[in-house]
Design a binder for these strands. Sequence first.
DNA 1: AACCAGTCCAACCGCAAAGAC
DNA 2: CGTCTTTGCGGTTGGACTGGT
Length: 265
Amino acid sequence: MGRSPCCEKAHTNKGAWTKEEDDRLISYIRAHGEGCWRSLPKAAGLLRCGKSCRLRWINYLRPDLKRGNFTHDEDELIIKLHSLLGNKWSLIAGRLPGRTDNEIKNYWNTHIRRKLLNRGIDPSTHRPLNVSADSAHPNQDAATISFSKQQDSDDGKASVFADLHRDAKMGVAVERCPDLNLELTISPPHQNQEAEDRVQPILKSGGGGRSLCFACSLGLQNSKECSCGIVGNISGGTSGSSSAGGYDFLGLKSAVLDYRSLEMK
DNA sequence: AACCAGTCCAACCGCAAAGAC
DNA sequence: CGTCTTTGCGGTTGGACTGGT
């Protein structure tokens, strides 16, 4: 194709950034904006690869970064988001303004993992450490397993879907949240400004009070698993349909999650 | 003061998705 | 439509820092 490789590995600096390099990068991005990372280093006069510049900017130099310790609320929000999304650090970071995926990932690995272990919770499954997966699901039948595997092989959304489907079989989360819609999309800052300002994501229920099958509850209305027969009829009905009562899904009643504003890639 | 172990975090690496050609 | 580049993400690493002995 004639394009040059993305990184000219020779003749590039590695390791810690100097103050001068930071200044160059900041002033270039201030003048020209973000993007075009490949050509940026040359244009900015930096002996770095574009990847390195992007990382430095996103994780350290961005002006909107919130430095300093995580608050207790942020801790709990990260735990809850992680229980839903797994190691989707960028998605989690998207719900914590001023925090980066790298920062949250580091914080998770150094603090929260230990915190959960001390609580007797498995950080990867968010279930009690002394309960094995098998013994926890004694009634899980073969059909369920094959269904979960099928979904697991799909994208992240389906993976969450499969996890929650397992939970549904156990009567866990879904029992408490029958109308949960896991349609995960990134949205611009939305109407609830006060809530946004407090970094409080909003969990919307999906069916506006209608009784949905599990597949529709998860925003998979077109799934063959749909058994309620309202295909295609609810996907647009999430805004403003936040249940007045609000499900306390994973304890998110007060710091609830807006699934419309999360996107599984 | 010197050493060591544990912790923290910035940065790197490899991979995959998205987009360009 | 297939190939290649670019970008973004998650996992991992290594050096700096800190506290204990």
